[in-house]
Write a protein that binds this DNA or RNA. Structure first.
Lengths: 111, 111
DNA sequence: ATTGTTCATCGTAAATGTACGATAAATGCA
DNA sequence: TGCATTTATCGTACATTTACGATGAACAAT
């Protein structure tokens, strides 16, 4: 990728927003988050039953969500319960909401 | 990638959300959108002056934003003016806002 | 007609993402 | 101890993303 390491500087917000967006940039991860958000409480590998994907693939997606901080998991071997991480969830709401709800100065007629 | 084409089904919302999220999953694209959103009106390759990246790379990112429908461009050779596409912008606001603002049933103490 | 400006596209290289099956790790139970 | 269950991780294959420089296309001005 020939990265020019000096290059572009990003604000913290830009980086956090980008990482959250990246986490939800795959439809199956959105589906997983929806499921977790709608459950009374946490969740486990019922995902494997609901989503027709290899268990390893789902685990990989869960890892991505974990690393983005959008979910958290409670290890209770051999099971693991996952749920939404409220803190990051709120951050996401604030940052993305603020971003897209901002009044747009832009009033042009580009085509 | 050995895609199992039958596999998982996604709702329209899930797909649209994912594609919008993907578009803003890179900090430089967030930066570009911020710049476009804050301008009185449209914008051009002043981006190249503001963002220290190869012109071709910026063009690539603009293409990604275009394809996601988040911006639109008016060709006025040899210049091109870009601006926010309000329609998709509102969709993004609604979908992402609705997603992250939804009341979470989830009230667990996962760690 | 030639030149300059602006932008997109091509070609390319390296990194990252996405999917799978196989295997390992952790625990409970027989 | 050995087996079943659940989940993460490894290895692998292929696609996609991201960056760059070089080149091409469209038009204005000379």
């Amino acid at each position: 990728m020939k990265r020019t390491l000096s290059a572009v500087e990003y604000s913290g917000e830009e980086q956090i927003m980008a990482s959250i967006a990246k986490a939800i940039s795959h439809p199956v991860r959105i589906k997983i988050l929806k499921l977790l958000a709608s459950r009374q409480c946490c969740f486990t590998g019922e995902l494997t039953e609901i989503i027709p994907m290899a268990q390893s693939t789902i685990s990989q997606h869960l890892k991505a969500l974990l690393e983005a901080g959008l979910i958290q998991g409670e290890i209770n071997p051999p099971k693991v319960r996952y749920c939404i991480n409220l803190e990051t969830w709120l951050t996401a709401s604030t940052l993305l909401g603020g971003f897209f709800n901002a009044d747009l100065t832009c009033r042009c007629e580009c085509r």
